[in-house]
């Protein structure tokens, strides 16, 4: 267990840039753009003589809102928090994708694998430490950064409004930052399961390819998909060609992007229509657990990881 902790820590040392600085810089840019947007709006507003709330009109509006309107303001603020996270999630997807591709390849290329292999660590724990780094450590850091950025975003909005004489705190209590946090952190275990086939496939390519793991990882499923589309092989199994693209190509490459499970995963078609932000509530997202797609992916991912461990053990090209 201690060894495993240090293995994961080792990954953080090596990938501080991707795991730690990438979300922070992205968050920083997001906030900066927001501030710039607000300043632009203020300047434009002032030059056109539009005054927001300065006359107390906005305060008036808020005072006159009924409870239903108030809850909408709250949702709006929640959206502001989720928006920060949205950008981070895209970045996280790319970070995890390229991390997995390099994880078992880079040290073979620079021969430092000979050093790692000179330590009493099994190849299985090496590979699993990389899975945990990709699916738990990196998302956890991104979520923490996302929450901080979201909070700052709320604060900036509040301060801006306060310049217009709007009582800040009255608005902030309408947001649900803890619910947002809870939803984001709670999503990580689901992400681990959903991302597993992608992580498995990318790590397998990383452990197997003698060179250019990216090319192999992308070209193999895409080329197979094209061949299948061309010859219509799926017809033999009474499945549409699209089946291969959604269930093999998409799952093996794009499942590392968080949220894809909820977007095109197996939400049951007869599920009641969920509107707005409730789609992000855990009791909605975790309905994915009921879909066979997820579990077939987990099994396939485990098999791919077993392959990655085998190649890590026996690939001999140093």
């Amino acid at each position: 267990m201690k060894t495993f902790y240090w293995l994961v820590k080792r990954e953080l040392w090596e990938h501080r840039g991707g795991f730690f600085w990438a979300p922070i810089i992205t968050g920083g840019i997001f906030l900066l753009l927001n501030i710039m947007g607000i300043i632009t709006a203020e300047v434009l507003g002032a030059s056109h003589g539009i005054q927001i709330g300065a006359s107390g009109a906005l305060t008036q509006v808020i005072a006159e809102m009924d409870s239903g309107d108030m809850s909408k303001v709250g949702i709006l603020l929640d959206v502001a928090m989720y928006a920060a996270m949205g950008l981070l999630i895209v970045v996280l997807g790319f970070v995890v994708f390229f991390y997995c591709l390099g994880a078992l390849y880079d040290d073979r290329r620079d021969r430092s694998i000979l050093f790692w292999k000179s330590l009493p660590i099994s190849d299985a724990s090496t590979v699993l430490s990389k899975v945990v780094s990709a699916t738990v450590l990196a998302p956890a850091i991104a979520v923490v950064v996302g929450i901080i950025v979201g909070m700052l975003q709320l604060l900036i909005l509040a301060i801006t409004l306060s310049f217009h004489g709007v009582n800040v705190w009255q608005l902030l209590v309408l947001a649900h930052p803890f619910k947002v946090m809870f939803n984001l952190i709670g999503y990580i275990p689901l992400y681990v399961l959903w991302a597993l086939p992608s992580v498995g496939w990318l790590l397998l390519c990383s452990a197997w390819a003698r060179n250019k793991p990216f090319l192999w990882a992308v070209a193999l499923p895409v080329a197979t998909g094209l061949l299948i589309s061309w010859f219509g092989i799926m017809g033999l199994f009474h499945l549409p060609t699209r089946w291969f693209w959604t269930n093999i190509v998409q799952r093996s490459l794009f499942s590392v992007f968080p949220g894809t499970g909820s977007l095109f995963g197996g939400t049951p078609h007869n599920a009641p229509h969920i509107d707005g932000l409730h789609a992000l509530d855990l009791n909605t997202t975790y309905q994915l657990l009921g879909s066979p797609d997820l579990w077939i992916g987990v099994v396939a991912g485990a098999a791919l990881l077993a392959g990655a461990i085998w190649f890590r053990r026996w690939r001999d090209d140093s």
Partner: peptide
């Protein structure tokens, strides 16, 4: 292999230490 490496040390030709590590 992993048990064996508890008893065996190994230095391959120079520069197999990972370049990023401190």
């Amino acid at each position: 292999r992993d048990k064996l490496m508890g008893e065996v040390c190994f230095i391959a030709d120079v520069a197999v230490l990972p370049r990023w590590i401190r």
